[in-house]
Amino acid sequence: MFSSNSTADYMPSDYRISGRKLETILGPLEARVMEIVWEMKTPVSVRMVYEKLRKERKIAYTTVMSTMNTLFEKGLLDRKIVRGRGGLLYVYWPKLSKEEVERSVVKQVIDSLMRNFGNSVTSYLVEITASDKEKLKVFKKLFESLEREG
């Protein structure tokens, strides 16, 4: 019921070059909330995330609530009304695993670059691969296996 839907792709609306990891596509708080939701591995309520975040920083409950609502609207979280502590409340769980989101972001970004700057992207990839012997080996193996498969 609460499992992530691996068939869906995440389409980031924005990409920040200066950001680190998930913060390139999400705000810092959104990224931290997503990390917590993935860590908890069970459906979580806003209060559960809030209590975890409160140990790290001074934060308002309503801020966490609106952040989780935004993540739901962005399609990263799914939610459902359940009977829990205090009454009927929303519980959230991730729609995609962390790896699926990362792969999806890479795919979307590179697809966009290839579409718009195809030649430049290819030559740059060759350039950075040639400068690193380890990467070069990896690429060679990848190409060889692709050729064998025909």
Partner: peptide
């Protein structure tokens, strides 16, 4: 504890 009450901070709402 039973109702899962969260106290609001002065700057909230």
């Amino acid at each position: 504890w039973l109702q899962g009450v969260v106290e609001l901070m002065p700057e909230e709402e």
